[in-house]
Design a binder for these strands. Structure first.
Lengths: 270, 270
DNA sequence: GTGAAGTAGG
DNA sequence: CCTACTTCAC
């Protein structure tokens, strides 16, 4: 089973790119972030024609997440509040979370807040949001131990995940509090699928539109797939497909694809 | 000699359209309106590659006129004030007038104010602007009797210049004061080149972007070439090329092309 | 640099 | 409907 994550920075502007990519890469599940459309505006027909079921949670202009799946998903929910019940409902005003289950694997698709700059109000929101996410995952893990947490995390955990021309200390997406918040989450029992197969630096999933970052390969690895133990063991590849970033009018992010071996049916219930 | 007029509604957005059109229609002079760029931003190289000399007078966002000519033009000037000296300089803040001479023919390229709605402040400005234009042409005629006055006049003189679904009375571009102001100008000695060859209605040069006007052919003939007597006699064709309006991302206007027979040199000095 | 929104002008 | 500008976010 192949699961991809891609921040597409407007599903309307990127529609042709996504359809072309899916045609070439018919993954089982595609997790999208930054769709930037309300649910009423989500372009459904082009994806349904490709044989995908659609699940989305969007808003005007900002954020927005979607799951595209070749199989119908079970147990789909949007936002934190269906899972974490003791929080303010306004935590779900920004559409950043969607989840569903396929073949016993719970996919959690996230668009973590960017945080603007270290110390800002948005930065505080990002750290608070990550605390809620921690609770959210704790709740999910109480029910299922097969979780694939995908998305744009807006955090590079290690310096090798960042091109070396950047000052990492106190830079947004690399500051210690952000990294710690993500480490606390991973400590619940998640491991980075990409790092199972590649321990080198210089692999990036996002390049700023500005300053010709892509041409100069000044990227960051901030789009991740984190797997619980058994899924991590089932991972047989995890690659970053740089191609879409090189097309005209690209998203600033490019897809990351993890492949899980199919569980033998005798183990499916374990 | 072929002289064309075309309101291109942003020279940057329409650059490819114009280059393609000029390649297919290598007119001697192309009069452009609504370039919508400052002189520093005017894209020169693509037109120079086609063998055109460029003369332009633009501003940010609005208005802007240009002359493209296969030959160098003489006596080029921009705005009213170089010709009509007793007016306020602010009459040239909006870039709507450019003129130059080719083979003894003075081309006057105009972007007449739209006027917004009858009775508005912009309407008053349009009528006042047309009075200044009257003075401007009187001055030019005192020196030369060979004038080709081209442009987007934002006035349809006769009801047959308008599709029949429009209420013409007191409609902007068709109101009596506008028509009278233009008639006063034409009375200086100008005649409509298009009407030398075609007296039928149903020929339009502009279709509103709204309400699928082009598909339904709900157009207006508001782009004109007005010629002084001898030039009018030399006119051998005047056609509206509807094709550019049917392309993707078109201007709302389409080119009008007049062809003048070449004057025998023995008459050139008359 | 790129996207979306709002606004003005047509 | 279409363009251009501005502001905002990333």
């Amino acid at each position: 089973m192949k699961i991809a994550t891609w921040n597409i920075n407007s599903i309307r502007t990127r529609l042709v790119h996504i359809v072309n990519w899916l045609t070439e890469n018919p993954v089982d599940v595609l997790c999208l972030q930054e769709t930037k459309v309300t649910d009423a505006q989500f372009p459904q027909a082009p994806f349904e024609s490709l044989g995908y079921y659609l699940y989305f949670s969007g808003q005007k202009s900002y954020n927005g997440v979607a799951l595209l799946s070749r199989q119908r998903l079970e147990d789909v929910s949007c936002g934190f509040t269906p899972i974490v019940t003791n929080i303010q409902p306004d935590w779900d005003e920004q559409k950043r979370v969607i989840t569903g289950v396929i073949d016993g694997v719970r996919i959690v698709n996230l668009y973590v807040p960017n945080g603007s700059s270290v110390g800002s109000e948005k930065y505080k929101y990002k750290l608070d949001w990550l605390k809620i996410l921690h609770e959210y995952l704790r709740s999910l893990l109480a029910v299922s131990s097969h979780i694939c947490m995908c998305g744009d995390f807006n955090i590079a955990l290690e310096s090798k995940d960042i091109h070396d021309n950047v000052t990492t200390e106190n830079h947004i997406m690399a500051s210690e509090p952000e990294r710690q918040a993500l480490q606390d989450i991973l400590a619940l029992g998640f491991a980075d699928a990409f790092r199972k197969f590649n321990t080198e630096g210089g692999h990036f999933s996002w390049w700023d539109y500005r300053a010709a970052s892509f041409r100069r390969n000044l990227g960051w690895r901030i789009d991740h797939q984190y797997l619980t133990q058994e899924l991590y063991e089932r991972a047989i590849s995890c690659i970053i497909d740089v191609t879409p970033r090189s097309l005209t009018q690209p998203s600033d992010h490019t897809p990351v694809i993890v492949e899980l071996s199919t569980t033998p049916s005798c183990l499916r219930l374990s």
